[in-house]
Design a protein around this nucleic acid. Structure first.
Lengths: 418, 418
DNA sequence: TGTTTTATTTCGGCGTCCAAAAAAATGTTG
DNA sequence: CAACATTTTTTTGGACGCCGAAATAAAACA
């Protein structure tokens, strides 16, 4: 509510409504678009024909299975996003690894690559250029000119400043404040977004089910770390500085267990892989194990131990549940979200964690505030970060580019009349 | 971004921009309105003349001191809100007391009343009618017909459901779920908002300084209880159920001190008047003193004791600071607001609380997240709740009524042409 | 009194929406 | 198989609100 309204805003908003409906629902006929957006058939005709002319939409080829084939009247002509409208690139950076995925305008991934890249010892001055190099090589190999890529989304563990386009702090890096947006823009000429990986999961979940998660929800990722994406009024919340929802580093216990971030008592220090493992092995609270990830075998063995009923394993999971539960209780007191979603490999052991988690929520927050709360545990999909990054990049494109329409339009009109 | 855009939306949005600018800046000339809103002079003329015709604005009488008197050119004609456009009523309900204030369309209070009213033993079925009775009597005495009141705002301690228009739980009531909106609408025919008192303080602070608090900020009230108003992207956050930002009942310490809400370890149980007093007197943590407010003399005496350096008083304030500080640390991890504002009588003892509060924030949250954080301690103004309630009601009117324009317009146009 | 300056209003054009009517494309039926 | 029914889509004409430019208004200055 800061922007002045004029016919430009009207066009932008309504074009975006049409694009949103198609992203959400898949191919739709014009009448259906009218129902979804509230616009009249006349307006839909006008908007969609412009979007088609702009190369953003296309009429679906007749091979589309007619859903309701036996009906009188003129058949529906489905409209869909034009996959050629633009390509987007999702980049996921983890400890000493980088994952690239190239998607078309509909979000379908058609090329991907996983590569080693030295992150932990990387220098802030040069890392951006290194990533740009990886991307350039990947695009060259895929035979896609960089100009076809409309946007790059980068997901990274830790604190990202999405405004400045930098990695503020990440467990994957020894150094701080690593710029990415600016080096990539310089090297490749492509705009880019840097975001926390959990925020991208939230972005993906919104794409999956907007009616469920489109209100106010908290998505917690539990695994090698504890992250969160916060959805407030249907938007992933980024906060004034572009860094927020650091649930993993929300304090649970003053002066408590040592966390990777250097503070004491963070939720992550109890509920991330390394925190659980540390406790299960009865290692002291104030010692951090190596910076590399906890081996998968060890985690599976711990789950097996818990299944056998071994007290130490159960106790470690209980403590994780308690830390998570009190964290959620505190979050609920502040925001009272309608959904809390748990995702990530850590949910494998949920049977041992959940009772303590729920008990802590009950002990920690007034009944009234959690009356309409649902807790969802979503099956693990390691690709969710990549998918969410692509979704987010495409929605950004819709909003900031496609909704505006081509800047050249006025000139074309003038040429015609001349 | 759910609403379809048409000329109706354009009118609404731009009328609202004009109203917002006037509420924020006071009287403005048309050119200045143009600068504030981004609209062209032609549009401002058109919009303002309609708003004047609707009785919402008026041209300021010449008695207005010309700010820049010696200037060439046609002098500015100031426009201002018409105080007669509507009246709003603010109601503040506290333990066994009710406060009423009647304000004009500019927010100036011109009539007020403080009365006793039995809240604690009030029945959920009848309390709404009782309040309606008080209001009717007040209006009769003020010789204002109820039809002149466009909106009632009710501020109450505790958890309010602003969607349902009820008091969900409040320390001022023994019973729960007390309906207000519906009884008032039935008895008086006036729409009404029920909100938490701290949210209304936030509303008032936004009105005071929108550039400072119009982004993302947390306003904490410290006094007989601990409340919070959360401003997210310039809007007071109400949450999906209409109840949120229950900072006072955010857990600080699992299994800790008993709180008025019945849970253990809430921040309020350490930082509200009764919590501080309990600790200073070394009463056990799990005993609640009477439900009446802590006497003012006792609080002043405790402050004096702290000033004399008495250990028990200092320790109680230290504990309060720690509870508040860790609460803020947790809040910052989630939302990283740009401002935290402390208001209320509890800030009188801030010199004893603040060092511990700041130490807890430092211990509890990564440096990066609090880099752009400012903590403001705002001088106590007991009237802030009333003022904020009025501000909120007027902004609601602007948005939902004045921005739309009269429904009769179409008919008028048709009559003219006939 | 005429000139300069600044504020406001008027006028004509533009872009987008919508309702209603027309056109298109197909199924149904005698 | 031609006329009718039904549904989708496009076309047409009118409304609304914005804007730029020109006109008008109201003062100070000279």
């Amino acid at each position: 509510m800061r922007e002045k309204a004029d016919s430009d805003l009207v066009r932008r908003q309504n074009r975006r409504l049409v694009l949103d409906a198609l992203r959400q629902q898949g191919p739709l006929a014009r009448v259906e678009l009218g129902r979804h957006t509230g616009l009249s058939p006349a307006s839909i005709t006008s908007i969609s024909s412009q979007l088609i002319a702009d190369g953003i939409l296309e009429e679906a080829g007749g091979e589309q299975a007619p859903v309701v084939p036996m009906r009188r009247g003129r058949p529906l002509t489905q409209l869909d996003l034009n996959p050629q409208s633009a390509h987007v690139l999702a980049v996921k950076i983890s400890i000493d690894g980088i994952e690239l995925a190239l998607a078309d305008g509909r979000g379908a991934i058609f090329q991907r690559l996983t590569a080693k890249i030295a992150t932990y010892e990387a220098q802030p001055q040069s890392f951006g250029a290194m990533v740009a190099g990886e991307i350039a090589a990947f695009l060259a190999h895929a035979q896609i000119p960089p100009g076809r890529i409309a946007r790059i989304g980068i997901a990274v563990q830790g604190v990202a400043d999405s405004r400045a386009g930098t990695i503020v702090w990440s467990p994957a890096f020894r150094h701080r404040n690593i710029a990415l947006q600016e080096p990539l823009r310089r090297a490749l000429g492509i705009p880019c977004t840097v975001a926390n990986d959990a925020n991208m999961i939230a972005e993906g979940l919104i794409g999956l089910d907007r009616t469920r998660y489109g209100g106010t929800a908290a998505m917690a990722f539990i695994g090698y770390g504890v992250g969160m994406g916060l959805v407030i009024n249907g938007q992933v919340y980024h906060g004034p500085t572009g860094a927020a929802a650091e649930f993993g580093h929300m304090n649970h216990q003053p002066g408590g267990a040592l966390c990777r971030c250097g503070r004491r008592g963070c939720i992550e220090a109890y509920a991330a892989d390394y925190g659980i493992m540390r406790r299960a092995k009865q290692n002291p609270d104030d010692i951090l194990m190596t910076h590399s990830a906890v081996p998968q075998e060890d985690l599976l063995e711990l789950e097996a131990a818990a299944r056998r009923g071994e007290a130490r394993a159960l106790e470690a999971y209980a403590k994780a549940g308690e830390a998570l539960g009190y964290g959620f209780a505190r979050l609920i007191a502040l925001l009272s979200p309608s959904h809390i979603v748990l995702v990530g490999p850590g949910t494998r052991a949920m049977e041992f964690i959940e009772p303590h988690l729920r008990a802590a929520i009950e002990a920690g927050v007034v009944d009234e505030l959690r009356r309409n709360l649902e807790i969802d545990i979503v099956p693990i999909d390691t690709d969710m970060i990549i998918k969410g990054t692509i979704d987010g990049a495409l929605r950004h494109l819709d909003r900031e580019v496609f909704a505006h329409g081509p800047a050249a339009k006025r000139q074309l009109v003038m040429e015609e009349s001349a």
